[in-house]
Amino acid sequence: MHHEIHPSASPAAIELHNHIKDALISSFGDDITGSQIDYDFPVFSVAKNRIHDVLEFLKNHNDLGFTFLTTMCGVHYPGNAGQEFALVYQLHNMEKNYRVRIKTFMADKDLNVPTATDLWLGANWMEREAFDFYGFRFTGHPDLRRILNMDEMNYHPLRKEYALEDAGRDDKEDKYFGR
């Protein structure tokens, strides 16, 4: 398992990270594929087929109690062969002020992910947004339609293959913008 701790992580963050890690590893074992601390934020990677179970486990855990879904979004890593897409969930325990970020990576061939709308009503539009921009298929979602873009659109615009600039322009080459 990949494990990494950011140098600026505080002792409290490391303690919380270890606490969540122990709970997750004891229940899910090898399905937890990575753990790290990004600037005081505990981050865990989870195998895609267990993502719903992990979210449910964290939500209903007696002590951790991540009952609040802060936000959720997709990320595209075209160079990351076999794991081109990532979904990122951020959960919050408001009483104890614990936060955690859960990631799951998947190949571009299979973008089916179990929905989290049965855990949080608020996941509905967040998942529609992730579908709209990246094309994730949330199985079990009650109403998976585009949300911000028009229904007729036939691509998912936040994917990296769609350049922002007009292809006919040559005065804005990527190398001038650090990409």
Partner: peptide, 24 residues
């Protein structure tokens, strides 16, 4: 939520917009 890959622009920037979330 900012992901930087060390370039001059963000690799990914996600904004948690409270209106978007509660309007549903």
């Amino acid at each position: 939520y900012l992901i930087s890959d060390g370039g001059r622009t963000p690799y990914r920037l996600h904004m948690r917009r409270p209106c978007f979330i509660y309007y549903q």
